[in-house]
């Protein structure tokens, strides 16, 4: 469903990671670990197709549903309007399962601008359920979530995996997804800085 072969990525023309290879099949999840600034976000953005990889091949990009640091919510739209828009953008209809999965049903008519940070995050994660895409690529999904919401999130990921989905998650905390979830430490793939990395500095 998602396959990376010997991928290198750069941030601002400076290579940060190289030689990253991984493959995700149905029901598989992989957790990315590494210290701040080690290139997790850059790698995930390349996987989502938001920036080109320096080298290597990324297969299965069309399966990816991406959730980054920003939730992409509009403050003056209600919770259900926000979700319905993303459902329409991804060509699906049903938003009720997403509302139930993240316990948002009571907030349905509330403006997204009036939600707390954790509620916004839950809405941002609920968006993944309405995309209908099989591979979730998540960048620090548990930021500003309380323990109960993290449990909701972990349950949603487990359900997604049980339905034959896959997930690639950059996180620092233990999500309790089970022992079979793989872990990739990106620090081992840190790029050696080449002496001359192009002429970007002069532009």
């Amino acid at each position: 469903m998602l396959e990376l072969i010997d991928v290198s990525v750069a941030r601002g023309s400076v290579p940060v990671l190289e030689g990253v290879s991984l493959a995700l099949g149905p029901g598989e999840a992989l957790v990315l670990r590494g210290p701040n600034g080690s290139g997790k976000t850059t790698l995930l953005r390349a996987v989502a197709g938001l920036q080109p990889a320096l080298a290597g091949r990324i297969g299965g990009q069309e399966n990816v549903a991406y959730a980054g640091h920003a939730d992409g919510l509009k403050a003056s739209l209600s919770v259900s309007e926000n979700l319905r828009f993303w459902a329409a953008a991804f060509g699906t209809r049903d938003i009720s399962t997403a509302l139930v999965a993240y316990d948002l049903s009571a907030l349905e008519v509330r403006w997204a601008g009036n939600l707390s940070a954790g509620q916004k995050r839950r809405l941002g994660l609920a968006r993944l359920l309405v995309t209908g895409r099989p591979v979730w690529v998540l960048d620090e999904p548990t930021v500003s979530l309380d323990a109960a919401s993290v449990a909701l999130f972990a349950a949603a990921v487990r359900a997604h995996l049980a339905q034959g989905g896959a997930a690639l998650i950059a996180t620092h905390i233990d999500l309790g997804l089970g022992a079979e979830v793989g872990v990739l430490d990106v620090a081992r793939h840190r790029a050696r800085f080449p002496a001359a990395s192009g002429d970007e500095a002069f532009l």
């Binding site: 197709g49 938001l50 991406y66 980054g68 920003a70 992409g72």
Partner: peptide
């Protein structure tokens, strides 16, 4: 962040 998500 909407633009990133729209692009995907």
């Amino acid at each position: 962040g909407t633009l990133d998500l729209l692009a995907t």
